[in-house]
């Protein structure tokens, strides 16, 4: 029966958690159809694939080489498309990260097949394969049916839980595709202190204009640190130059769906909600009880953030120490 291929993403030589999530998303589909789960890892020679043990992968294909140390779109896409053909994959999955959002459509175009982006569910129903995805700034959910012989699907980070199965996959090496790359990633510039990215974190604490001035973001940073999470920001404070755009959550920033999202001094404009509405648990701290953020929040505290946030940070620290 038809196999599935997950194109895993690695960073600094280790496979990312989001790729384990993508394997989890498709494992049950493969079980029903009786197909195998193939995982392709493209990256530098030193990439470790041990973490894929227990992830649900049946076979891991390693396409490693110095030329793949940085994300090279054409090289990665051509290698993935070749693997999909060789694996006779009916589904090709990638995680919907910055890399995956770039890669998935390229693979689909090379394979001449359909694309379903950023899915949060994927199931086999009587109708065939069905996926759901947030559209219209997360103001609606779209259900799609995959009707083609083959489809490329990108999977929303944090929407699936990695599996824990005991078995180790078999590992095979394969060659990277040869491409004449007319676009080349020459370097990745990292900020001096590499911070946890909002799009990848399972806890995000975001601050807005309610913080009044940039220095007060220390309150948000401390709470995020106590929770082991990343710092996010509203557009208002990014536009004001208080925070880098990389931290912006929303329509024109990043889409996040962490297990916990804390909005501090953020009103909850629709464009902000677009980026965080699908978080599992939302907490809002705002002095205005009518702020729209409370409409999506699971838990809210009405009041002055300057009093509430330090206290919250303290309580969290106490718990974490226990």
């Amino acid at each position: 029966m038809a196999n599935v291929l997950v194109v895993a993403e690695q960073r600094d030589g280790a496979v990312k958690r989001v790729s384990m999530e993508a394997i989890a998303a498709v494992r049950s589909v493969a079980d029903v159809s009786g197909g195998a789960v193939h995982v392709l890892v493209v990256g530098p020679p030193a990439t470790a694939t041990d973490d894929l043990t227990g992830s649900g992968a049946d076979t891991v294909f390693r396409a490693l080489g110095d030329e793949a140390a940085l994300y090279q779109a054409d090289l990665y896409a051509a290698t993935a498309a070749a693997r999909a053909e060789a694996s006779d994959a009916a589904l090709v999955l990638v995680a919907a990260t910055a890399l995956g959002k770039d890669l998935a459509p390229r693979i689909a175009a090379r394979l001449g097949c359909g694309l379903v982006a950023d899915v949060s569910t994927l199931e086999r129903s009587d109708d065939g394969l069905v996926a759901t995805r947030a559209v219209y700034s997360a103001k609606a959910m779209m259900t799609v049916r995959l009707t083609g012989r083959r489809s490329v699907v990108s999977v929303r980070p944090n929407a699936f839980t990695p599996l824990e199965r005991g078995d180790a996959p078999s590992v095979e090496d394969m060659a990277l595709a040869s491409v004449s790359a007319r676009a080349r990633t020459v370097r990745v510039e990292q900020p001096e202190q590499a911070a946890l990215d909002v799009a990848e974190a399972s806890v995000v604490v975001s601050g807005g204009r309610g913080l009044k001035e940039p220095a007060h973001f220390a309150l948000v940073e401390e709470l995020a640190a106590a929770l082991g999470g990343a710092v996010g920001a509203s557009r208002a404070v990014v536009d004001a130059g208080w925070r880098p755009h990389a931290e912006q959550v929303g329509q024109t920033g990043k889409t996040v769906s962490p297990s916990l999202y804390v909005a501090v001094g953020i009103s909850g404009a629709v464009q902000h909600l677009a980026g965080m509405r699908t978080s599992q648990v939302i907490v809002a701290i705002n002095k205005d009880k009518d702020a729209p953020i409370f409409k999506v929040a699971d838990y809210g505290i009405v009041g002055d953030l300057f009093e509430i946030v330090p206290r919250l940070t303290e309580e969290i620290r106490t718990i974490k120490e226990q």
Partner: peptide, 19 residues
């Protein structure tokens, strides 16, 4: 195409939050 939109729905109302 290989993709067919079968339904568009409003997002499941988040379980009523509380202050």
């Amino acid at each position: 195409g290989g993709v067919e939109v079968t339904a568009l729905t409003l997002p499941a109302a988040r379980a009523e939050g509380r202050i």
